[in-house]
């Protein structure tokens, strides 16, 4: 498994990942701020009130964006968890662990904004219908992953147990997504992704898509930042981490550290065989 033959494998080395994230995050932060501000502007000052819901529908911009993000982050966390289980790549565990808190926050926000939208629209903050219940399960899966990861004395053991939970729990995401079609639901069906095209005013759709993109970039930035910190915390004795913390990791240090990561991983694999 040479890092030259498959380009992305280069970033399984924490030092290489750190340098890449360092370059990406400022742009992600800036993009997130720009897109969210544009979404708020169009959502509040261009898009008109909705015919049936009046002004309360404006909650949906942030509700839909955070709900989609929660589901997407869960699938990504399960994917990294699966990679960690199969190939024991430490960076995959770092990524999955770094996604979990943001995924939990997004899912919490989707439930919170959903409740505040439901109260005036349905007359209740909460119902135990399929979509709301499965979304609550998603929040508990994120929290369970975090708890399980920290529960074992040995970080590898905790990481493996949590990754297994993440992979098994992934079955919940299609349940959330299709729940509005599969069961009778108080929650409405999809109005963005439909066979006959989106069923809303163009300005509303624009605001919603901008908000989704903004929340996407925000999540990418915050997850990469957290993964950087997590990588530093896990390798406190390494030269690259000490140099990176001081803001001056050289190319040589990075390449030496990457070569060391590959050696470490290979010897670990041989030890298991």
């Amino acid at each position: 498994m040479s890092s030259r033959s498959v380009p992305w494998l280069k970033f399984t080395a924490p030092a290489n990942f750190y340098a890449l994230a360092q370059r990406l995050t400022p742009w992600l932060w800036a993009g997130a701020a720009l897109l969210c501000l544009a979404a708020l502007y169009i959502g509040f000052f261009v898009a008109p009130a909705e015919a049936h819901q009046g002004e309360s529908y404006r909650i949906l911009y942030i509700h839909v964006a955070t709900a989609w993000m929660g589901m997407f982050l869960y699938l990504l966390m399960a994917l990294y968890g699966g990679i960690y289980l199969v190939w024991r790549i430490k960076m995959a565990d770092i990524m999955a662990r770094s996604i979990a808190p943001t995924g939990a926050l997004m899912t919490f926000l989707s439930l919170w904004t959903g409740a505040l939208w439901g109260a005036p629209t349905w007359g209740t903050f909460w119902v135990w219908d399929a979509r709301l219940t499965s979304t609550l399960v998603l929040l508990f899966l994120f929290l369970g992953y975090i708890a399980l990861h920290g529960a074992a004395d040995d970080r590898e053991k905790g990481g493996r147990a949590a990754s297994l939970l993440a992979v098994i729990g992934a079955i919940n995401v299609p349940i959330i997504y299709f729940s509005v079609d599969w069961w009778y639901n108080l929650h409405q069906g999809s109005s963005v992704i439909r066979a006959d095209g989106p069923s809303m005013a163009p300005s509303m759709l624009t605001a919603m898509l901008l908000m989704i993109a903004g929340i996407w970039l925000y999540s990418a930035a915050v997850v990469l930042r957290r993964a950087q910190v997590e990588a530093l915390e896990r390798e406190p004795r390494s030269e690259w981490a000490q140099a990176a913390a001081a803001g001056r990791m050289t190319r040589t240090q990075r390449e030496l550290a990457a070569a060391e990561s590959v050696r470490e991983h290979t010897s670990q694999e041989e030890g298991q065989a």
């Binding site: 009130a49 009046g54 002004e55 309360s56 404006r58 909650i59 942030i62 509700h63 955070t66 926000l109 919170w112 904004t113 505040l116 939208w117 109260a119 005036p120």
Partner: peptide
């Protein structure tokens, strides 16, 4: 005032 939905709308965006 958000058309009478101030608590719901600002409660959503504020907490977010």
């Amino acid at each position: 005032a958000m058309g009478g939905y101030a608590g719901y709308v600002w409660g959503s965006y504020g907490v977010t």
